[in-house]
Write a protein that binds this DNA or RNA. Structure first.
Length: 499
DNA sequence: CCCCCCCC
């Protein structure tokens, strides 16, 4: 769409604007904009002052019509939607001035009108827009309201933009990320000390093929976190010279007790931004950080203190409620007893690299090949992948668990299990026998899996796959409190009164 | 008027 959509010489609502001048930018670009338009700060944008009247020293009324002067710090791609209420297209912007930030969204005709002309990092005047409350569930800019473009909305470029800041960050140290709730948004800054491969997979929900890449960020708290990049950002990421990465509005994810940050459509990533925090961080990393040991908060702990809150269920309740039938897995907590642990195929030989757990191929010459690392090693490490039957007072359930959880339940390391398997079959068997009839508090992940039994008749077999996300010993005082809470909820009896 | 942001 043409640049002319950005009107700079039109006067709206009688605002005082100099006439069009001849010394504008080169041909094809908008004429020299008016840099003297009255504006309100972004922090003051609300539905009730989108037209402000002012009494000037000249004794006349001026309108500033809620005009703002703002830098575009995020411009999303055009997104189309189709739902029960209709279909359409939209894009959104993050707008920043010295007072704050706000999100603006353009729908349908406004997309055609403004999408091409508005450029990242440039400053514009915006006026005659609609204002509505921001939905805090989805908002990741710090403002109570958001702007919607309408048919009267005017946008004009502003070249006198030195007073308008760039992206505003509110960084938190990486070691504080886990204190925030999963699915909330945070700003983080870190040195990219590691990059993973680009991984392609098919999304369960949309069947779309997706590309992702995890990179590892570290900061002065000597803590590292995994940042997930998507699509072209994943493919084009360049980790040359361990750049500083600043992320605004990254989404916190929880997996297996660890936390990671993921880019979303509304996140902003800057590589080596020219901001004080970045220079300080790079200085720290080059002098100290590069050799420091770090705690990785994205590691799956299996036993971490995260997330036993909420959903307590018995196995019968889980089955009755058809848990795991949705698009996403369901999590529940329960107290259960190990009834049986399968000793067959409990261990596998994995790549010896610290961050790689890929199964290795025995080359037959005392060398083991990892396809992921594309390397051969003279050694390997044992890892556990256990299948076991758990029982509670209502029913039982087969579950699987991995390394850390399996070690916690067996009470021995994967290495000990693997060694015993080859040297002492009695000891090996005893590891599994000893685990039976132990009770724990489990956090379990349930997801229904479907098997197409036959291609010529529609006959889908379904099976509930349950994985242990976390395990911990039973703290009876704490568990009894949980039971008491349940009883209170089920009862009208006031337990706080003496009987 | 979107608000899904994906996977282990």
């Amino acid at each position: 769409m043409p640049q002319q959509q950005l009107v700079s010489n039109k006067v709206m609502y009688g605002a005082k604007v100099p006439s069009k001048t001849s010394n504008g930018p080169s041909k094809g670009l908008p004429p020299t904009p008016d840099n003297d338009m009255k504006c309100q700060p972004i922090s003051a944008v609300c539905p009730y002052n989108s037209a402000l009247y002012k009494f000037t020293i000249h004794g006349i009324f001026e309108f500033d019509s809620g005009r703002i002067k703002a830098r575009v710090t995020l411009k999303t791609p055009i997104k189309t939607w189709s739902n029960a209420r209709g279909e359409g297209k939209l894009f959104s912007l993050n707008l920043v001035d010295e007072s704050g930030e706000i999100r603006a969204t353009a729908f349908n005709e406004s997309v055609d009108k403004f999408y091409e002309s508005l450029e990242m990092n440039k400053v514009y005047y915006f006026s005659n827009y609609s204002v509505k409350p921001a939905n805090k569930n989805f908002s990741n800019v710090n403002h109570d309201y958001e702007i919607t473009f309408n048919s009267s909305t005017q946008v004009s470029p502003c070249l006198n933009d030195s007073d308008v800041p760039t992206t505003q960050f509110n960084f938190i140290p990486i070691n504080k990320i886990a204190e925030n709730d999963p699915t909330s948004y945070v700003d983080v800054i870190g040195v990219c000390k590691n990059v993973g491969d680009v991984v392609t997979f098919t999304a369960r929900t949309t069947n779309k093929e997706l590309k992702k890449r995890d990179i590892t960020l570290v900061d002065q708290s000597n803590t590292s976190v995994s940042l997930t990049l998507w699509g072209s950002q994943a493919e084009e990421f360049d980790d040359t010279n361990q750049p500083v990465i600043a992320v605004k509005a990254g989404r916190i994810n929880e997996f297996g007790g660890g936390r990671s940050v993921s880019m979303t459509q509304a996140s902003i990533m800057l590589v080596n931004p020219d901001i004080p925090e970045a220079h300080k961080l790079k200085g720290w990393f080059d002098n100290h950080g590069v050799t420091q040991e770090t705690v990785n908060i994205s590691a799956r702990t299996g036993t971490g203190g995260v997330g036993f809150d909420g959903n307590w269920m018995s196995f019968k309740e889980v089955h009755d409620a058809q848990l795991g039938g949705g698009d996403k897995p369901d999590y529940f907590n329960c107290k259960a007893t190990v009834l049986l642990v399968r000793s067959e195929n409990a261990t596998y030989r994995a790549c010896p690299q610290v961050d790689c757990n890929k199964k290795v191929v025995d080359m037959g010459n005392d060398m083991y090949r990892c396809e992921k690392c594309q390397a051969e090693y003279p050694n390997f490490k044992y890892r556990l992948l256990l299948s076991m039957c758990l029982g509670d007072w209502t029913s039982n359930q087969w579950v699987t668990c991995f390394q850390e959880v399996a070690e916690e339940i067996l009470g021995v390391t994967a290495q000990e299990v693997g060694t015993a398997e080859n040297t002492d079959q009695n000891m090996y068997n005893s590891f599994f026998k000893n685990a039976t009839f132990k009770s724990f508090i489990f956090k379990l992940r349930a997801k229904m899996e479907f098997y197409n039994v036959s291609s010529w008749c529609v006959c889908d077999e379904r099976r509930l796959k349950v994985t242990i996300a976390q395990v911990k010993p039973i703290n009876f005082k704490e568990y009894n409190n949980t039971l008491m809470d349940n009883i209170k909820k089920l009862s009208d009896i006031d337990f706080t009164k003496e009987v």
